[in-house]
Write a protein that binds this DNA or RNA. Structure first.
Ligand SMILES: [Mn+2]
Ligand SMILES: [Mn+2]
Ligand SMILES: [Zn+2]
Ligand SMILES: [Zn+2]
Lengths: 144, 144
DNA sequence: CGGTCTCTTTTGAATTGATCAAATCAAATG
DNA sequence: CATTTGATTTGATCAATTCAAAAGAGACCG
């Protein structure tokens, strides 16, 4: 669970390059970020990095298990460094904010449906949709 | 739960047009279909219908609660006529086939997470990922 | 340290899925 | 049947992502 970029890359046999380190560092600061947001963050310190490089790095990180890609409906793909624990997400329907939701291990009846239509199920992905605190307060302020 | 296209449209105050009837009929035959598949099906009987019309119709159906739009990761948007019961889906990671999974009402602990980060949760969406029977048998046949 | 190999990044184009907008067309209403 | 209002066509545009070739730079070896 080391979040040091160079260590992560080395442990995975990936070359340590400035764009890769910068993308990982961006993901540490922005735990559920889209490619364009990561590109913007990376550009602050490495202005010569291309958007394509960010896509390449994110793809490599995901392929090597260093990052996880999620695709909430209506959102571009988001990436995160928290991998391997199959946790879930709650997404704000107003602003798109994403937060982690731990998988409730021990009572997972929803994750083993009765009727599976013959599918061999490997994983259950849960997305909670709701309104975050900020958006709720903002809308209350507007109404009153 | 009437799946007669004209009745559905009339009950929703939507005009009854040939493309709308054809899209609904296509969805009856293909219960989880993407716009291009619906377009292909509709084109068989209404070859002058445009893809844009299909998008328009699907959008209208979804807006008026006659259809539901789902967006599994890695897939274009899919539409279905089964609405209002918040059921879930199992998706084949090999061929993309989608099947319905009833929501296990009564024991929904996964759908009310303990830590919600202040979000007011309105809905829980579950996607099961696995391999369908056909793809499983095909891969077994290949290996042996 | 310098050369070589391989992997990475850049550059520029292409693709997919979807949306926007104006002009044309057609269903509903009386 | 005429009018109104909403739907469809046409053509452009967009966002997110991927493809591919050329150039660049880590890694490793001698
Ligand atoms: Mn997460
Ligand atoms: Mn369904
Ligand atoms: Zn919000
Ligand atoms: Zn399959």
């Amino acid at each position: 669970m080391d979040l040091d970029a160079r260590t992560m890359l080395a442990d995975s046999g990936l070359r340590i390059t400035a764009p890769r380190v910068a993308v990982i560092d961006a993901l540490v600061e922005m735990p559920h970020a889209a490619a364009d947001a990561i590109f913007a963050k990376v550009s602050e310190t490495l202005p010569r990095t291309s958007l394509q490089a960010v896509y390449n790095v994110l793809g490599d990180l995901a392929t090597h298990g260093l990052a996880r890609r999620i695709e909430p409906a209506g959102s571009p793909a988001l990436y995160e460094l928290r991998v391997g624990d199959n946790h879930h997400h709650v997404v704000c329907t107003h602003c798109g904010k994403v937060a982690d939701v731990d998988c409730s291990v021990g009572h997972a009846p929803c994750l083993t449906p009765s009727e599976t239509h013959g599918f061999a199920i490997a994983e259950a992905e849960v997305t909670y949709w709701g309104v975050c605190t900020e958006c709720r307060e903002a809308s209350v302020a507007t109404v009153h």
